[in-house]
Amino acid sequence: MKTRSMLLLLLAFAAQAASAAQIITVSKFQFGKQWAFTKEEVQLLCRPDGSLFALNMSTLMQYPLNQQATHAMTSGQVNATSIDGILLDDPDNPGEKMSIAPFAERAGQLCDAPK
């Protein structure tokens, strides 16, 4: 009985670890002119369902980087807000915001990383 309980407990911890979101910190220094955010650094994360977010650690607010994340936000599954609030204007294209594509790509790599 005791062995069985320990085995179940270990399996529960393994399942929790496997379902955890992958996260990485990126900075303006790393991306140079591609930097899209009003903050000097953000965290990028990939949730187990493939939704990608940028995270502002000073406010703990999440910002969607792909369609899955936008859907999770609009359906109320996660507490997040539109990324437009932290995007810089694109100096090469007046009236446009900087592209989030490099950040979505980098966050997507976290989904493929070994857990």
Rank of each mutant, 00 (worst) to 15 (best):
M1G: 13
T3P: 08
L8Q: 12
L8I: 10
L9Y: 07
L10F: 10
L10Q: 08
L10H: 07
L10P: 07
A12L: 14
A12I: 06
F13P: 01
A14N: 14
A14Y: 13
A15C: 14
Q16N: 13
Q16M: 13
A17C: 13
A18G: 14
A18D: 15
A18V: 12
S19Q: 14
A20Y: 10
A21E: 01
I23G: 06
I24G: 07
I24R: 03
I24A: 15
S27E: 03
K28S: 00
K28M: 02
K28L: 01
K28Y: 01
F29A: 10
Q30G: 11
F31W: 02
F31P: 00
F31I: 02
F31S: 01
F31V: 02
F31C: 02
G32I: 02
W35V: 02
F37S: 05
T38Q: 15
E40H: 11
V42R: 00
V42Y: 00
Q43R: 05
L44M: 04
L44W: 02
L45A: 06
C46V: 11
R47P: 06
P48A: 15
P48K: 15
D49F: 01
G50Y: 03
S51V: 14
S51K: 06
S51D: 14
L52C: 02
L52V: 04
L52R: 00
N56E: 12
M57A: 15
M57W: 15
T59F: 12
L60T: 15
L60D: 15
L60K: 15
M61P: 09
Q62Y: 06
P64T: 03
P64R: 01
P64Q: 02
L65P: 00
N66T: 10
Q67M: 07
Q68A: 06
A69V: 09
A69Y: 08
A69I: 11
T70K: 06
M73T: 03
T74G: 08
T74P: 08
Q77K: 14
Q77M: 13
V78N: 03
V78D: 04
N79S: 11
S82D: 13
S82N: 14
I83A: 00
D84N: 10
G85M: 09
L87S: 08
L87H: 07
L88P: 02
L88V: 05
D89G: 10
D92E: 11
D92L: 10
D92K: 10
N93A: 12
P94V: 10
P94K: 13
G95F: 05
E96W: 02
E96L: 01
K97W: 05
M98N: 12
S99F: 04
S99L: 04
S99G: 04
S99M: 04
I100L: 01
I100H: 00
I100A: 00
I100C: 01
A101I: 10
P102V: 06
P102E: 03
F103K: 03
F103E: 01
A104G: 06
A104M: 11
A104E: 08
E105V: 09
R106L: 03
A107L: 05
Q109G: 09
Q109V: 09
L110S: 04
L110I: 08
C111T: 04
D112W: 15
D112C: 08
A113V: 12
K115H: 14
K115M: 11
K115E: 10
K115I: 07
K115S: 12
